[in-house]
């Protein structure tokens, strides 16, 4: 805009500024309204969707996982609060809290046997056995959701990846890199020997023995039982280190 001299010019400029401001405000308002409208539409659509597929969401673990993924993408957490429309609509909050409680129970019952580490898959199976009456299938994804909700309790529930497997940790302990690698090696047969660890990981005998002894005693972390058990009776004459947390044999716990 060209500046014109004189009081008239200044007044005109001020008027133009006001006009712009008004226009700007109305554009912004229109945008906000539009946005609000869209959000309302979206929310009602999501509600409609949830209502329509309510049974699928509750019964079908795969569908439930996809629904969670979708919610996560648009920044909605159906579990954020137990009140609110999600809980009323789906009862989904209760579902995960219940699952969470059961997971804690299973982990505590199994702790003396597996030292506080449990295979996610096995946890899922045990959960299924425990919930026989509930009839709703529980997937690994559901376990993960429920465990993520347990974190707020600060109880040290965590999911760790060892090789291809996921393990659920219920004791506040740190597994160092060496221990992780040993667990990975043990996934094949459920046990390892000192020689096998040496060979597979190219470690010295001392390093392998040290790491295995630590896992046996779990002395580096207070208050937990050992993660390993030994079998000295094998025909090959070597000491086998077994890890109940990765072999499904421990499914007897709690029965």
């Amino acid at each position: 805009m060209n500046r014109r001299p004189g009081i008239g010019g200044l007044q005109a400029a001020a008027a133009a500024r006001d006009q712009y401001r008004l226009l700007g405000a109305s554009v912004a308002k229109r945008r906000t309204d539009l946005m609000k409208e869209q959000l309302v539409t979206f929310r009602s659509q999501l509600e409609d969707f949830a209502r329509k597929h309510r049974n699928d969401i509750r019964k079908n673990p795969t569908f439930r996982a996809q629904f969670h993924e979708m919610c996560a993408k648009v920044g909605v957490d159906p579990l954020a609060s137990n009140k609110g429309f999600w809980a009323e609509l789906l009862g989904i909050g209760d579902f995960y809290y219940e699952l969470g409680v059961q997971i804690v129970e299973i982990c505590l019952a199994a702790r003396p046997h597996n030292g506080g580490l449990i295979n996610l898959q096995e946890l899922c199976n045990l959960l299924g056995q425990k919930r026989k009456t509930a009839r709703e299938a529980v997937s690994e994804d559901d376990c993960l959701q429920a465990i993520s909700k347990l974190k707020v309790l600060g109880s040290g529930f965590e999911v760790i990846s060892v090789g291809k497997k996921k393990l659920v940790r219920s004791v506040p302990t740190e597994l160092n890199k060496d221990h992780n690698e040993i667990l990975e090696v043990a996934q094949g047969q459920g046990y390892v020997t000192v020689e096998e660890v040496q060979r597979r990981l190219s470690w010295s005998a001392g390093r392998a023995t040290d790491a295995l002894e630590t896992l046996l005693e779990a002395s580096s972390c207070q208050s937990i039982e050992g993660l390993a058990m030994i079998d000295e009776g094998h025909r090959d004459g070597k000491c086998h280190y077994w890890f109940p947390c990765i072999s499904s044999i421990s499914s007897y716990v709690g029965s």
Binding site: Y191, L216, E225, M229, G233, W242, S250
Partner: peptide
């Protein structure tokens, strides 16, 4: 038979106290 009967280490007396007690 219980499941632990098929888990070899249960046939070796465990050296670590807590584990042994459970066994």
């Amino acid at each position: 038979l219980p499941n632990f009967f098929n888990y070899p280490p249960y046939f070796t007396l465990q050296p670590v106290r807590d584990t042994r007690e459970k066994q």
